[in-house]
Design a protein around this nucleic acid. Sequence first.
RNA 1: GGUCCCAUCGUCUAAUGGUUAGGACAUCACCCUUUCACGGUGGUAAUAUGGGUUCGAAUCCCGUUGGGAUCACCA
Length: 440
Amino acid sequence: MSDIKVRFAPSPTGYMHIGNTRTAIFNWLLAKKLGGKFMLRIDDTDKERSRKEYEDAIRESLTWLGLKWDEEARQSARVTRYQEVTARLLAAGRIYPCYETAEELDIMRKKLMTKGLPPIYDRSALKLTAEQIALYEKEGRKPHYRFKLIDGDIVWNDLIRGECRYDAAKLGDPVIIRADGSYLYHLPSVIDDFDFGITHIIRGEDHVTNTAAQIQMFEAIGGKTPVFGHLPLLTGAEGKLSKRLGSVGVLDLREQGIEAMAICSYLTKLGTSDAIEPFYDLQSLADTLDFNKLGRSQPKFSEADLAHFNTHLVRNMPYSFVADRIDSDETFWNAVRGNLTIVSDYKQWKNICRCAVTPIIEDAAFLSVAAELLPAEPWNEDTFSSWINEIKNRTNRKGKDLFHPLRKAITAMDDGPELKILLPLIGYSRVHSRLNGIAA
RNA sequence: GGUCCCAUCGUCUAAUGGUUAGGACAUCACCCUUUCACGGUGGUAAUAUGGGUUCGAAUCCCGUUGGGAUCACCA
């Protein structure tokens, strides 16, 4: 067993959407491909916004997608560990207290912006005298804490973007502890990745500057930095990384009949040079994972395309894949799958085969001839074509004029699987009655 | 505004200095199925823009334009 370990670290502040899901899938597939482990970490450092309901939904989403996790942790349970590390970094001067209020910081940022300067914290807290600090404390101000970045280039070799280089001086020291003593995500994330032995981190491109800061945190706590890979962000049809995209929830998609494997296949192939094609199990999808095939530009995600792709996947879906979900046999499935849009549409065809259907009669005379000629069971492979030939000879009809009325009478539908295949599934008695205009 | 990233058919992308600029999805046409769908075969369709470098540029360099990310006491 390799000691490869990856993690998916959602904050339970919302449902799983297309963006989240994509990073979960990539991490999971990487673990699978390298024979490593996949860890679920609940990043619930934001008490205000975290909710149990979301956490449950995330678990349900992952389970439905088939992304099983080998290990689990939650940040709210590890605060003492974070405090331990914090004390050490504080003593080492890598963490320092600040007394500005949120409003003051906001004003500072705006000032810098209007001057055309980057809105980066000026580290004035480092110049505070003991007296000034005492004054703030007396006022009742509680400090928040920042992590002090060391000047110089931060460089890493990104799995997706190649060599990345950031000048720490242009980054700004991140706040890591709030005035109320609670942690922000940066440092706990690093401590966890270190403690749990995370070797690879795949996340969205929106994290690149965080990565730069976090690399210094890994160094500060004496840990080896994991391998990073930053995925280009998905955009909506209109280019922007729209809010709509964030609202496309996986559970909603499931509700609409989108298959888990359609989501997994589509999301891992979108933005790569591979064809977007259906995969029916995650292992074979994992075998094809190759970060070199990912482009660097932002692919557009389209719900309509996904739905279309899903239909394609359903129409080629092997019976084994649906066997435990539908109450029909393989013959039936193979007969109808080519006409489905979503799996649950099979019920409609099942009803046509096994329940009463009111036929659509457009030409009663023609249909009664067809009924008259319908051979008795048992039917064999040739029954259908010889029957059709009989009708053709008797009525002089062919092509659409011949088939369409039959189809409408027998199935009450405009289209569907080949009649030849469908007929034996419906049976003589129903076919005969329907041709005569009788619901059966 | 600082920093970083990106720009090839409608869409996702290939072509790492020399190709009739390739593939996949979509679309269109045809074929098959004596019907629709499924399936098969073909077609239409692209290098944002201006300068360089070079015998030769989608490819390298600079500018322009456009798009995105980040610069939170969110993650």
